[in-house]
Design a protein around this nucleic acid. Structure first.
Lengths: 214, 214
DNA sequence: AATTACCGACAGACAGTCGGTCGGTGAGGT
DNA sequence: ACCTCACCGACCGACTGTCTGTCGGTAATT
Protein backbone atom coordinates (compact mmCIF):
# COMPACT_ATOMS: atom_id res chain seq x y z
CA UNK A 1 0.00 0.00 0.00
CA UNK A 2 1.37 3.31 -1.01
CA UNK A 3 0.84 6.43 1.02
CA UNK A 4 2.35 9.69 -0.11
CA UNK A 5 3.17 12.43 2.36
CA UNK A 6 5.11 15.64 2.46
CA UNK A 7 8.81 15.16 2.91
CA UNK A 8 8.94 17.08 6.19
CA UNK A 9 6.13 15.04 7.63
CA UNK A 10 7.79 11.75 6.69
CA UNK A 11 11.09 12.92 8.07
CA UNK A 12 9.40 13.74 11.33
CA UNK A 13 7.70 10.33 11.42
CA UNK A 14 11.01 8.63 10.85
CA UNK A 15 12.76 10.68 13.49
CA UNK A 16 9.98 10.11 16.00
CA UNK A 17 10.07 6.37 15.52
CA UNK A 18 13.85 6.24 15.49
CA UNK A 19 14.08 8.35 18.63
CA UNK A 20 11.80 6.00 20.50
CA UNK A 21 13.67 2.93 19.26
CA UNK A 22 17.11 4.36 19.98
CA UNK A 23 16.03 5.14 23.51
CA UNK A 24 14.60 1.67 23.94
CA UNK A 25 17.26 -0.44 22.32
CA UNK A 26 20.17 1.86 21.66
CA UNK A 27 21.56 3.05 18.37
CA UNK A 28 23.49 -0.05 17.41
CA UNK A 29 20.73 -2.21 18.82
CA UNK A 30 18.22 -0.69 16.46
CA UNK A 31 18.40 -1.87 12.87
CA UNK A 32 17.12 0.17 9.98
CA UNK A 33 14.59 -2.62 9.49
CA UNK A 34 13.23 -1.89 12.94
CA UNK A 35 12.71 1.71 11.94
CA UNK A 36 11.10 0.75 8.64
CA UNK A 37 8.68 -1.55 10.41
CA UNK A 38 7.82 1.07 13.01
CA UNK A 39 7.11 3.76 10.45
CA UNK A 40 5.58 1.39 7.92
CA UNK A 41 7.70 2.38 4.94
CA UNK A 42 10.17 0.67 2.64
CA UNK A 43 13.96 0.79 2.71
CA UNK A 44 14.19 3.09 -0.24
CA UNK A 45 11.90 5.61 1.38
CA UNK A 46 14.06 5.90 4.40
CA UNK A 47 17.16 6.43 2.31
CA UNK A 48 15.27 8.89 0.16
CA UNK A 49 14.90 11.13 3.19
CA UNK A 50 18.13 10.41 5.06
CA UNK A 51 21.54 9.66 3.58
CA UNK A 52 22.44 7.26 6.39
CA UNK A 53 21.36 5.84 9.70
CA UNK A 54 23.77 8.13 11.49
CA UNK A 55 22.17 11.16 9.87
CA UNK A 56 18.88 10.16 11.46
CA UNK A 57 20.55 10.33 14.83
CA UNK A 58 22.09 13.68 13.98
CA UNK A 59 18.66 14.99 13.12
CA UNK A 60 17.19 13.74 16.36
CA UNK A 61 19.95 15.25 18.46
CA UNK A 62 19.76 18.57 16.67
CA UNK A 63 16.01 18.73 17.19
CA UNK A 64 16.47 17.78 20.82
CA UNK A 65 19.16 20.37 21.35
CA UNK A 66 17.14 23.12 19.77
CA UNK A 67 14.23 22.47 22.05
CA UNK A 68 16.20 22.13 25.27
CA UNK A 69 18.56 25.02 24.73
CA UNK A 70 15.79 27.31 23.64
CA UNK A 71 13.93 26.75 26.90
CA UNK A 72 17.09 27.37 28.84
CA UNK A 73 17.80 30.56 26.93
CA UNK A 74 14.37 31.86 27.75
CA UNK A 75 14.92 31.26 31.45
CA UNK A 76 18.43 32.68 31.34
CA UNK A 77 17.30 35.98 29.93
CA UNK A 78 14.94 36.95 32.73
CA UNK A 79 17.12 39.85 33.72
CA UNK A 80 15.02 41.20 36.59
CA UNK A 81 15.34 38.06 38.70
CA UNK A 82 18.23 37.70 41.14
CA UNK A 83 21.09 35.87 39.47
CA UNK A 84 20.96 32.87 41.75
CA UNK A 85 17.34 32.32 40.94
CA UNK A 86 18.03 32.75 37.24
CA UNK A 87 20.73 30.14 37.47
CA UNK A 88 18.48 27.68 39.20
CA UNK A 89 15.61 28.23 36.81
CA UNK A 90 17.87 27.87 33.81
CA UNK A 91 19.33 24.63 35.06
CA UNK A 92 15.85 23.37 35.82
CA UNK A 93 14.78 24.28 32.30
CA UNK A 94 17.62 22.18 31.00
CA UNK A 95 16.50 19.22 33.04
CA UNK A 96 12.85 19.68 32.25
CA UNK A 97 13.33 20.16 28.54
CA UNK A 98 15.19 16.94 28.53
CA UNK A 99 12.49 15.24 30.48
CA UNK A 100 9.83 15.87 27.86
CA UNK A 101 11.59 13.90 25.21
CA UNK A 102 13.89 11.41 26.77
CA UNK A 103 12.56 11.00 30.24
CA UNK A 104 15.75 10.42 32.14
CA UNK A 105 14.38 7.47 34.01
CA UNK A 106 16.59 4.64 35.07
CA UNK A 107 15.86 2.09 32.37
CA UNK A 108 16.74 4.59 29.72
CA UNK A 109 19.85 5.87 31.40
CA UNK A 110 21.00 2.28 31.66
CA UNK A 111 20.82 1.93 27.94
CA UNK A 112 22.18 5.31 27.06
CA UNK A 113 25.38 4.48 28.84
CA UNK A 114 25.84 1.10 27.32
CA UNK A 115 28.78 0.74 24.96
CA UNK A 116 26.53 0.43 21.94
CA UNK A 117 25.46 4.02 22.46
CA UNK A 118 28.89 5.54 22.72
CA UNK A 119 28.39 7.56 19.58
CA UNK A 120 25.01 8.95 20.56
CA UNK A 121 26.36 9.71 23.96
CA UNK A 122 29.35 11.54 22.56
CA UNK A 123 27.14 13.66 20.37
CA UNK A 124 24.84 14.61 23.20
CA UNK A 125 27.87 15.39 25.31
CA UNK A 126 29.17 17.70 22.64
CA UNK A 127 25.82 19.41 22.41
CA UNK A 128 25.75 20.01 26.14
CA UNK A 129 29.32 21.17 26.47
CA UNK A 130 29.19 23.56 23.57
CA UNK A 131 25.61 24.71 24.07
CA UNK A 132 25.09 25.16 27.79
CA UNK A 133 28.09 27.15 29.04
CA UNK A 134 27.44 30.22 26.85
CA UNK A 135 23.93 30.44 28.25
CA UNK A 136 25.00 30.15 31.86
CA UNK A 137 28.00 32.41 31.34
CA UNK A 138 25.67 35.30 30.49
CA UNK A 139 24.07 34.96 33.88
CA UNK A 140 27.45 34.79 35.55
CA UNK A 141 28.53 37.97 33.77
CA UNK A 142 25.51 39.81 35.12
CA UNK A 143 26.32 38.41 38.53
CA UNK A 144 29.84 39.73 38.25
CA UNK A 145 28.55 43.22 37.51
CA UNK A 146 26.30 43.00 40.52
CA UNK A 147 29.24 41.87 42.62
CA UNK A 148 27.74 38.48 43.36
CA UNK A 149 30.31 36.48 41.43
CA UNK A 150 33.93 37.16 40.74
CA UNK A 151 35.92 35.47 38.00
CA UNK A 152 37.90 36.75 35.03
CA UNK A 153 36.83 33.74 32.94
CA UNK A 154 33.06 33.32 33.09
CA UNK A 155 32.66 31.27 29.91
CA UNK A 156 35.65 29.04 30.43
CA UNK A 157 34.74 28.48 34.05
CA UNK A 158 31.21 27.46 33.22
CA UNK A 159 32.62 25.15 30.60
CA UNK A 160 34.64 23.45 33.28
CA UNK A 161 31.70 23.21 35.64
CA UNK A 162 29.31 21.93 33.01
CA UNK A 163 31.84 19.45 31.68
CA UNK A 164 32.37 17.93 35.08
CA UNK A 165 28.70 17.99 35.95
CA UNK A 166 27.98 16.20 32.71
CA UNK A 167 30.54 13.54 33.48
CA UNK A 168 29.38 13.16 37.03
CA UNK A 169 25.64 13.02 36.54
CA UNK A 170 24.91 11.98 33.01
CA UNK A 171 27.48 9.41 32.26
CA UNK A 172 27.79 5.95 33.65
CA UNK A 173 31.53 6.49 33.65
CA UNK A 174 32.03 6.79 37.35
CA UNK A 175 30.17 4.00 39.07
CA UNK A 176 29.90 5.36 42.54
CA UNK A 177 27.94 4.15 45.52
CA UNK A 178 25.60 6.53 47.29
CA UNK A 179 28.17 7.77 49.75
CA UNK A 180 30.80 8.44 47.11
CA UNK A 181 28.24 10.24 45.01
CA UNK A 182 27.26 12.39 47.94
CA UNK A 183 30.87 13.38 48.39
CA UNK A 184 31.16 14.24 44.71
CA UNK A 185 28.12 16.48 44.89
CA UNK A 186 29.28 18.28 48.01
CA UNK A 187 32.73 18.75 46.52
CA UNK A 188 31.16 19.91 43.29
CA UNK A 189 29.19 22.64 45.00
CA UNK A 190 32.16 23.66 47.09
CA UNK A 191 34.38 23.86 44.03
CA UNK A 192 31.79 25.69 41.98
CA UNK A 193 31.66 28.29 44.74
CA UNK A 194 35.43 28.64 44.66
CA UNK A 195 35.50 28.94 40.90
CA UNK A 196 32.81 31.58 40.85
CA UNK A 197 34.41 33.53 43.66
CA UNK A 198 31.62 33.40 46.20
CA UNK A 199 32.22 32.44 49.78
CA UNK A 200 31.64 28.94 51.00
CA UNK A 201 28.06 28.02 51.75
CA UNK A 202 26.51 30.85 49.80
CA UNK A 203 24.96 28.50 47.29
CA UNK A 204 21.53 28.21 48.80
CA UNK A 205 20.62 24.88 47.27
CA UNK A 206 22.07 21.50 47.81
CA UNK A 207 22.08 18.14 46.12
CA UNK A 208 18.34 18.31 45.46
CA UNK A 209 18.99 20.18 42.24
CA UNK A 210 21.09 17.46 40.80
CA UNK A 211 18.73 14.55 40.82
CA UNK A 212 18.23 13.83 37.17
CA UNK A 213 20.17 14.82 34.12
CA UNK A 214 22.56 17.63 33.22
CA UNK B 1 50.69 -23.22 6.70
CA UNK B 2 50.15 -23.90 10.31
CA UNK B 3 52.22 -22.29 13.03
CA UNK B 4 51.50 -23.03 16.65
CA UNK B 5 52.45 -20.61 19.36
CA UNK B 6 51.79 -20.11 23.02
CA UNK B 7 48.46 -18.51 23.73
CA UNK B 8 49.94 -15.47 25.42
CA UNK B 9 52.27 -14.82 22.52
CA UNK B 10 49.47 -15.06 19.96
CA UNK B 11 47.30 -12.81 22.05
CA UNK B 12 50.06 -10.26 22.12
CA UNK B 13 50.53 -10.52 18.35
CA UNK B 14 46.84 -9.97 17.82
CA UNK B 15 46.71 -7.03 20.18
CA UNK B 16 49.80 -5.45 18.62
CA UNK B 17 48.40 -5.69 15.12
CA UNK B 18 44.95 -4.57 16.20
CA UNK B 19 46.36 -1.62 18.13
CA UNK B 20 48.24 -0.40 15.08
CA UNK B 21 45.21 -0.86 12.83
CA UNK B 22 42.79 0.77 15.27
CA UNK B 23 45.07 3.78 15.47
CA UNK B 24 45.37 3.95 11.70
CA UNK B 25 41.82 3.30 10.65
CA UNK B 26 39.75 3.46 13.78
CA UNK B 27 37.89 0.66 15.50
CA UNK B 28 34.87 0.48 13.23
CA UNK B 29 37.07 1.11 10.22
CA UNK B 30 39.13 -1.96 11.02
CA UNK B 31 37.50 -5.27 10.16
CA UNK B 32 38.43 -8.51 11.81
CA UNK B 33 39.65 -9.59 8.39
CA UNK B 34 42.17 -6.76 8.46
CA UNK B 35 43.46 -8.07 11.75
CA UNK B 36 43.58 -11.64 10.51
CA UNK B 37 45.57 -10.58 7.46
CA UNK B 38 47.96 -8.49 9.53
CA UNK B 39 48.68 -11.28 11.99
CA UNK B 40 48.52 -14.03 9.41
CA UNK B 41 46.00 -16.26 11.15
CA UNK B 42 42.54 -17.60 10.42
CA UNK B 43 39.22 -16.39 11.74
CA UNK B 44 38.84 -19.27 14.11
CA UNK B 45 42.20 -18.57 15.68
CA UNK B 46 41.28 -15.03 16.52
CA UNK B 47 38.04 -16.11 18.12
CA UNK B 48 39.87 -18.85 19.92
CA UNK B 49 41.84 -16.20 21.79
CA UNK B 50 39.29 -13.40 22.05
CA UNK B 51 35.53 -13.77 22.49
CA UNK B 52 34.81 -10.67 20.40
CA UNK B 53 36.34 -7.78 18.55
CA UNK B 54 35.43 -5.48 21.40
CA UNK B 55 37.36 -7.65 23.83
CA UNK B 56 40.46 -7.08 21.75
CA UNK B 57 40.01 -3.37 22.27
CA UNK B 58 39.44 -3.89 25.97
CA UNK B 59 42.68 -5.81 26.16
CA UNK B 60 44.59 -3.11 24.35
CA UNK B 61 43.23 -0.37 26.55
CA UNK B 62 43.91 -2.30 29.71
CA UNK B 63 47.48 -2.95 28.65
CA UNK B 64 47.89 0.69 27.71
CA UNK B 65 46.45 1.86 31.01
CA UNK B 66 48.66 -0.42 33.05
CA UNK B 67 51.77 0.89 31.38
CA UNK B 68 50.89 4.58 31.54
CA UNK B 69 49.49 4.61 35.05
CA UNK B 70 52.39 2.60 36.39
CA UNK B 71 54.89 5.16 35.12
CA UNK B 72 52.84 7.94 36.61
CA UNK B 73 52.61 6.19 39.95
CA UNK B 74 56.35 5.83 40.07
CA UNK B 75 56.80 9.55 39.48
CA UNK B 76 54.07 10.46 41.94
CA UNK B 77 55.67 8.59 44.78
CA UNK B 78 58.99 10.48 44.83
CA UNK B 79 58.22 11.96 48.19
CA UNK B 80 61.42 13.95 48.67
CA UNK B 81 60.81 16.22 45.69
CA UNK B 82 58.84 19.44 46.12
CA UNK B 83 55.18 18.83 45.36
CA UNK B 84 55.08 21.12 42.37
CA UNK B 85 57.90 19.24 40.74
CA UNK B 86 56.28 15.92 41.55
CA UNK B 87 53.10 17.12 39.93
CA UNK B 88 54.90 18.19 36.79
CA UNK B 89 56.90 14.99 36.53
CA UNK B 90 53.84 12.86 37.06
CA UNK B 91 51.89 14.67 34.37
CA UNK B 92 54.86 14.37 32.05
CA UNK B 93 55.02 10.67 32.75
CA UNK B 94 51.39 10.42 31.74
CA UNK B 95 52.08 12.20 28.47
CA UNK B 96 55.28 10.28 27.80
CA UNK B 97 53.83 6.89 28.59
CA UNK B 98 51.15 7.63 26.13
CA UNK B 99 53.68 8.79 23.56
CA UNK B 100 55.44 5.44 23.46
CA UNK B 101 52.42 3.59 22.27
CA UNK B 102 50.08 5.92 20.55
CA UNK B 103 52.24 8.81 19.54
CA UNK B 104 49.78 11.65 19.91
CA UNK B 105 50.62 13.13 16.54
CA UNK B 106 48.04 14.95 14.53
CA UNK B 107 47.08 12.29 12.02
CA UNK B 108 46.29 9.90 14.79
CA UNK B 109 44.38 12.39 16.87
CA UNK B 110 42.28 13.16 13.85
CA UNK B 111 41.21 9.57 13.64
CA UNK B 112 40.81 8.99 17.32
CA UNK B 113 38.18 11.67 17.44
CA UNK B 114 36.22 10.50 14.46
CA UNK B 115 32.75 9.24 15.21
CA UNK B 116 33.71 5.69 14.40
CA UNK B 117 35.96 5.67 17.44
CA UNK B 118 33.43 6.88 19.94
CA UNK B 119 33.56 3.64 21.86
CA UNK B 120 37.34 3.45 22.06
CA UNK B 121 37.41 7.05 23.02
CA UNK B 122 34.87 6.56 25.77
CA UNK B 123 36.86 3.69 27.22
CA UNK B 124 40.11 5.62 27.21
CA UNK B 125 38.28 8.51 28.81
CA UNK B 126 37.01 6.26 31.55
CA UNK B 127 40.49 4.92 32.12
CA UNK B 128 41.92 8.42 32.48
CA UNK B 129 39.16 9.77 34.67
CA UNK B 130 39.14 6.86 37.07
CA UNK B 131 42.87 6.17 36.99
CA UNK B 132 44.63 9.51 37.05
CA UNK B 133 42.93 11.53 39.82
CA UNK B 134 43.80 9.11 42.65
CA UNK B 135 47.47 9.33 41.69
CA UNK B 136 47.52 13.11 41.56
CA UNK B 137 45.38 13.43 44.66
CA UNK B 138 48.10 11.76 46.70
CA UNK B 139 50.51 14.50 45.72
CA UNK B 140 47.93 17.13 46.53
CA UNK B 141 47.39 15.63 49.96
CA UNK B 142 51.09 15.87 50.71
CA UNK B 143 50.99 19.44 49.44
CA UNK B 144 48.15 20.20 51.81
CA UNK B 145 50.16 18.92 54.76
CA UNK B 146 53.05 21.11 53.69
CA UNK B 147 50.71 24.04 53.42
CA UNK B 148 51.22 24.44 49.70
CA UNK B 149 47.68 23.51 48.72
CA UNK B 150 44.43 23.94 50.52
CA UNK B 151 41.27 22.05 49.67
CA UNK B 152 38.97 19.81 51.67
CA UNK B 153 38.36 17.63 48.58
CA UNK B 154 41.64 16.62 47.00
CA UNK B 155 40.40 13.57 45.10
CA UNK B 156 37.16 15.10 43.89
CA UNK B 157 38.93 18.29 42.90
CA UNK B 158 41.55 16.47 40.87
CA UNK B 159 38.74 14.52 39.26
CA UNK B 160 37.21 17.77 38.12
CA UNK B 161 40.51 19.13 36.86
CA UNK B 162 41.45 15.95 35.03
CA UNK B 163 37.99 15.59 33.54
CA UNK B 164 38.08 19.05 32.09
CA UNK B 165 41.68 18.74 30.94
CA UNK B 166 40.78 15.52 29.20
CA UNK B 167 37.87 17.16 27.43
CA UNK B 168 39.89 20.20 26.52
CA UNK B 169 43.07 18.58 25.26
CA UNK B 170 42.29 15.07 24.22
CA UNK B 171 38.94 15.26 22.66
CA UNK B 172 38.02 16.84 19.40
CA UNK B 173 34.83 17.98 21.06
CA UNK B 174 35.64 21.64 21.29
CA UNK B 175 36.99 22.80 17.99
CA UNK B 176 38.74 25.99 18.99
CA UNK B 177 41.07 28.25 17.08
CA UNK B 178 44.45 29.10 18.52
CA UNK B 179 43.28 32.15 20.37
CA UNK B 180 40.30 30.45 21.95
CA UNK B 181 42.51 27.55 22.98
CA UNK B 182 44.97 29.95 24.58
CA UNK B 183 42.15 31.45 26.60
CA UNK B 184 41.04 28.01 27.69
CA UNK B 185 44.52 27.11 28.87
CA UNK B 186 45.00 30.35 30.78
CA UNK B 187 41.58 29.99 32.36
CA UNK B 188 42.35 26.38 33.15
CA UNK B 189 45.51 27.25 35.03
CA UNK B 190 43.80 30.11 36.82
CA UNK B 191 40.92 27.88 37.85
CA UNK B 192 43.18 25.03 38.90
CA UNK B 193 44.96 27.49 41.18
CA UNK B 194 41.67 28.56 42.68
CA UNK B 195 40.52 25.01 43.18
CA UNK B 196 43.74 23.99 44.87
CA UNK B 197 43.79 27.05 47.06
CA UNK B 198 47.05 28.59 45.95
CA UNK B 199 47.32 32.24 45.05
CA UNK B 200 47.13 33.40 41.47
CA UNK B 201 50.28 33.04 39.43
CA UNK B 202 51.96 30.60 41.76
CA UNK B 203 51.84 27.83 39.18
CA UNK B 204 55.32 28.24 37.74
CA UNK B 205 54.62 26.66 34.37
CA UNK B 206 52.42 27.76 31.58
CA UNK B 207 50.84 26.33 28.50
CA UNK B 208 54.05 24.50 27.52
CA UNK B 209 53.07 21.58 29.66
CA UNK B 210 49.87 20.97 27.83
CA UNK B 211 51.10 20.34 24.34
CA UNK B 212 50.06 16.76 23.73
CA UNK B 213 47.53 14.56 25.45
CA UNK B 214 46.30 14.35 28.99
C1' DA C 1 45.34 -40.15 24.66
C1' DA C 2 44.20 -35.71 25.90
C1' DT C 3 44.63 -31.12 25.42
C1' DT C 4 44.93 -27.04 22.96
C1' DA C 5 46.13 -24.04 19.10
C1' DC C 6 44.55 -23.63 14.72
C1' DC C 7 41.83 -23.65 10.38
C1' DG C 8 38.28 -21.90 6.97
C1' DA C 9 33.64 -22.72 5.26
C1' DC C 10 29.54 -21.02 6.73
C1' DA C 11 25.43 -18.64 8.75
C1' DG C 12 22.94 -14.64 9.81
C1' DA C 13 22.45 -9.85 10.03
C1' DC C 14 23.09 -5.48 8.47
C1' DA C 15 23.58 -0.79 5.89
C1' DG C 16 23.18 1.13 1.86
C1' DT C 17 22.00 0.99 -3.60
C1' DC C 18 19.40 1.09 -7.68
C1' DG C 19 16.14 0.64 -11.29
C1' DG C 20 11.72 1.30 -11.53
C1' DT C 21 6.63 2.71 -10.00
C1' DC C 22 3.03 5.72 -9.12
C1' DG C 23 0.53 9.76 -7.14
C1' DG C 24 0.12 14.65 -7.41
C1' DT C 25 0.46 19.06 -9.87
C1' DG C 26 0.52 22.65 -13.04
C1' DA C 27 1.05 24.33 -17.80
C1' DG C 28 -0.83 24.32 -22.23
C1' DG C 29 -4.22 23.05 -25.35
C1' DT C 30 -9.22 22.74 -26.50
C1' DA D 1 -13.90 25.57 -17.55
C1' DC D 2 -12.12 21.16 -18.54
C1' DC D 3 -9.02 17.91 -20.11
C1' DT D 4 -4.32 15.78 -20.79
C1' DC D 5 0.13 15.03 -20.43
C1' DA D 6 4.77 15.83 -18.98
C1' DC D 7 7.30 16.10 -15.08
C1' DC D 8 8.68 15.87 -10.20
C1' DG D 9 9.68 13.48 -6.33
C1' DA D 10 7.93 10.28 -2.82
C1' DC D 11 7.99 5.57 -2.64
C1' DC D 12 9.11 0.63 -3.24
C1' DG D 13 11.72 -3.82 -2.34
C1' DA D 14 14.99 -7.02 -4.33
C1' DC D 15 19.75 -7.11 -4.28
C1' DT D 16 24.84 -6.47 -3.10
C1' DG D 17 28.74 -6.54 -0.48
C1' DT D 18 30.53 -6.67 4.00
C1' DC D 19 30.85 -7.82 8.51
C1' DT D 20 31.03 -10.51 13.00
C1' DG D 21 30.80 -14.57 15.18
C1' DT D 22 30.18 -20.04 14.92
C1' DC D 23 31.27 -24.77 14.33
C1' DG D 24 33.10 -29.11 13.08
C1' DG D 25 37.24 -30.76 12.18
C1' DT D 26 42.68 -31.03 11.99
C1' DA D 27 47.34 -30.97 13.56
C1' DA D 28 50.79 -30.19 16.98
C1' DT D 29 52.25 -30.69 21.75
C1' DT D 30 52.38 -32.88 26.38
Amino acid sequence: MRVVKEAEERKKEIMDAAERLFMEKGFDGTSTNDILAAVGIARGTLYHHFPSKEHIMDGIIERLGDKILENARKAAVEKDLPVFERLVKTIMALNAGEAENIRPSEEIMEYIHQPQNALMHQKIRKLVITGVPPILAEIIKDGIEEGVFQTPWPLETMEMIVTYANTLFDEGLLDLDGEEMMGRIRAFIYNAERLLGVEEGSVPFGPELFAGGE
